[in-house]
Amino acid sequence: MQYSEKVLQHFMHPQNVGVMENPDATATEGSPACGDQVTIYLKVDEEKLIIEDVSFLSYGCASNIATASIVTEMAKGKSLEEAKKITWRDAMDALDGLPPVKAHCSVLAADTLQSAISNYEIAHGLKEVPNFSKETIIEELKKIIYPQVGEDIITLKMVKYVGFDEKTGEVLIDLNLMSFDQYRDNVAEEIREHLEKYPEVKDIKINFPSS
């Protein structure tokens, strides 16, 4: 068993699980094809901008459910500004760590929370819909975990080049992963899943070093 006691506790007895009636904001990230999907519902105090209530649904593995549980626990009662600072690393630390191959589960949970907050802010005129740019791509790449070590591919310096052609909508990424790398296809697939959801992205080209 590679899971910490805390992970198992949150998996077996998750907090804040269930559909919320009339939420102020929701977000769904992931997909059945990736094997995990999380939906987060928020109830926000409009005056104080505090997260009054939060709940989630999860289709996924034990660590997926556990991280969604801990992320909602961490967000509950916090102001939107405070909750925006919750990262996947915080979620992982709060669970006493996850096996490296499972780190991406904490990213999904934290990401879904951030999307729900962002959806709330956009709907209430607190922020503009952000412009899609190269920075957006880099922010997305920071959410992609290399499973063997449980770190993101930007931190690990696996991304050598990122380009975005605004006219054609073509994304160009150079990844420093060799052909024999067992996670190369996973990483490439996840990059596509993260970027395809943006309507500005029409084509994604991922280059690898020639071996």
């Binding site: 068993m1 899971y3 198992l8 094997g35 995990d36 289709y59 996924g60 593995c61 034990a62 997926n64």
Partner: peptide
């Protein structure tokens, strides 16, 4: 249907 196998095996393991 609708649920994921790793979560099931971890619970069965309990």
């Amino acid at each position: 249907d609708f649920i994921e196998g790793e979560a099931i095996t971890v619970m069965l393991d309990m």
